[in-house]
Amino acid sequence: MTQFMNADGSGLVGALNPLGNGQALQVDGSGNLKVTPGSGAGIDGGVGAGLTPEVSYLFNSGAPGNNNFDRQRELQGKGIIFNNVTAGSTLGSTSLTFSSVAGLLPGSPVLLVGGGYVEVVYVSNSYVVGSNPVSLQTGLTYASHTGAFWDTYAPQGPQLNGLLATGIEPVANVIIDPNAGNYYIGRAASQDGCSGSNIPLMNAALFNGTSLDRAIGLNGVPSMQNWVRQLALQGHAYLAQSGLQSSGTGTNDYPLSIFNPAASGKTILIYSIRIMAGTAGANSIVARLKFTTTDPAYSGSATVSNLKAGGASSAIAGSCSFATSNTTPVAPFLQIDIANGPLELLQNDQILILPSGSASGLSVFLETYAAGSYCCSVKYVEF
């Protein structure tokens, strides 16, 4: 545009608008040039051309190929696609073939998995949408990848399918771990045995002695079981027994030992000790309890069963034993009882503890006075 002058004789700068009419540039009250967003950036659905000044970028701390910044995504841009890597996954390769390239765009970051390693590569900016193999901006750092994830358009967002970390501004509830001094975000409550150093779970959690398990409910109602029943539900309750054995004539003592080695990594809580003998009614029986600091390792291996069908074996199963020959008990004793029938030695919620790392045990001696059948059993939980 020419021959447009200001009152002071200076040139008036302007341009043709989309209708072909001349239009002068305008300034606001502070003398700043008024501008409007270009290339449709002021509306949704912009094609992305010429939008560099108007797009939010997030620093990723140095992705491969000097791709230090990624465009910020909205939820509809965080659909997730997975496809198999079918060729090209060799060290230094700059091209990969996928089982499908649906939704893959030039410059997109691709998360590669499998082969024992995870890495991110960026699609070449000159990539032609729909072509396969896919050219990359940098070579692979690792080989033998088997799968790939990338972002794609999703009309309703990712919903329950999860999403990749690319282009997400880290706005989240965080807590500080006072022991480590670090901040952590909440984690999904998708497993038990969670470390206690970087929670919270997004669910109520209970300490099991070493880590955290999800609180258990039944039909939407919180479980209010006592501690032993709760551990039984989780498969941590056990029964150790001598089985049905035969006592000899005269006075004989038959021991059952529960021993917790220092290396077991478990605390043992004993909540039931039961003895019985067929001759008790006529001749009575005597029980003696004794703490031990070394494993007596009697000749018979006790039968140790998880009280949850299909549950894991006890950590101390190999250290539970019994003897079928007369074994004289040696004082001091923790407890002595006499009865003319089956005898439960721990009553009124009494418990005995064999602490983790202590190399400690408990032996129960059943004393009989006539030939017949007998059995000893101990119930415990470990945590």
Rank of each mutant, 00 (worst) to 15 (best):
156 Q>A: 14
211 S>H: 08
202 M>L: 15
165 A>I: 13
164 L>A: 02
172 A>D: 12
195 S>Y: 07
215 A>W: 06
161 N>V: 07
200 P>C: 02
223 S>L: 10
195 S>E: 10
154 A>V: 03
205 A>G: 06
195 S>C: 08
171 V>Y: 09
185 I>K: 15
156 Q>C: 05
155 P>F: 13
199 I>V: 15
187 R>C: 04
179 N>I: 14
223 S>G: 07
197 S>C: 06
217 G>H: 05
170 P>M: 05
203 N>A: 14
215 A>E: 03
209 G>Y: 04
172 A>W: 13
164 L>Y: 01
200 P>E: 00
189 A>I: 02
173 N>Y: 11
214 R>Q: 05
149 F>R: 01
165 A>L: 09
205 A>R: 03
182 N>Y: 09
216 I>M: 11
158 P>I: 01
168 I>C: 08
180 A>W: 04
154 A>R: 00
218 L>S: 14
192 D>M: 04
188 A>H: 10
158 P>Y: 05
219 N>Y: 08
216 I>F: 08
201 L>K: 09
160 L>H: 06
159 Q>W: 11
185 I>C: 10
176 I>R: 13
155 P>C: 03
180 A>L: 11
163 L>T: 09
153 Y>H: 08
215 A>G: 07
165 A>T: 15
178 P>T: 11
187 R>H: 11
208 N>D: 12
218 L>C: 10
149 F>V: 04
157 G>E: 03
175 I>P: 05
178 P>E: 12
197 S>P: 04
154 A>G: 03
175 I>F: 11
148 A>C: 01
149 F>G: 00
218 L>M: 08
225 Q>P: 07
198 N>H: 06
202 M>S: 12
183 Y>N: 08
158 P>R: 01
156 Q>M: 12
166 T>L: 15
181 G>M: 05
202 M>E: 10
200 P>H: 02
221 V>E: 03
162 G>N: 06
176 I>G: 10
164 L>M: 03
207 F>K: 02
158 P>S: 06
196 G>S: 15
216 I>K: 10
169 E>T: 13
186 G>E: 15
152 T>L: 12
172 A>P: 05
154 A>L: 04
156 Q>K: 12
213 D>Q: 07
161 N>W: 09
219 N>M: 06
185 I>M: 14
184 Y>I: 06
222 P>Y: 08
215 A>I: 09
225 Q>S: 14
189 A>H: 05
199 I>M: 07
171 V>F: 14
173 N>D: 14
193 G>L: 08
199 I>C: 06
151 D>I: 00
225 Q>R: 13
173 N>C: 08
214 R>N: 04
206 L>H: 06
211 S>G: 14
215 A>C: 13
212 L>P: 00
187 R>I: 13
197 S>M: 14
170 P>N: 09
167 G>I: 00
196 G>P: 10
182 N>S: 11
166 T>F: 15
212 L>E: 00
223 S>V: 06
177 D>S: 09
174 V>S: 07
154 A>C: 02
210 T>K: 09
148 A>Y: 00
181 G>Y: 00
182 N>C: 10
160 L>S: 11
192 D>T: 04
218 L>W: 04
197 S>Y: 14
198 N>G: 05
196 G>T: 10
172 A>H: 12
212 L>Y: 10
